[in-house]
Design a protein around this nucleic acid. Sequence first.
DNA 1: GCCAACGTTGGC
DNA 2: GCCAACGTTGGC
Length: 141
Amino acid sequence: MKYWLFKSEPDSWSWQQQKAKGSAGQQWDGVRNYQARNNMRAMEVGDLGFFYHSNQGLDVVGIVEVSALVHHDTTTDDPRWECVDIRAVKDVPNPVTLNDVKANPKLADMVLVNNSRLSVQPVSAAEWKEVCRMGGVEPAP
DNA sequence: GCCAACGTTGGC
DNA sequence: GCCAACGTTGGC
């Protein structure tokens, strides 16, 4: 089991929209960055991730689960770009803001803090546990 | 709206 | 293979 963080601007794809997709899930398309794509290639069905709102909100608002392995991103003809499907699992009752993360020494090494531009990020098990604790979520589904 | 950080592109 | 120019992202 691995952990991840998916970043999206609520203006283009929000947590509300993700939740509306329910268990059907949604392909995480539009990624045009090799690092982010490689992270998705490393994902397995059942891996968990945080859903983070960038630009507006700047907080972790939900938990998602990888529901389909990496496959071609249908929004482009370019064969280089691939994506996984994710489905919403549950809300984070107390959304964890970027400021909260920055203020917590245990999270000093989070990619969110150190490479904020990466849109699909790995999260360590310790970081996962800590952010779940801050958000008031059980670390396991 | 601004700007810093970062990734990509393309000429050499 | 290097590096300057450019475009994009995302926090502020």
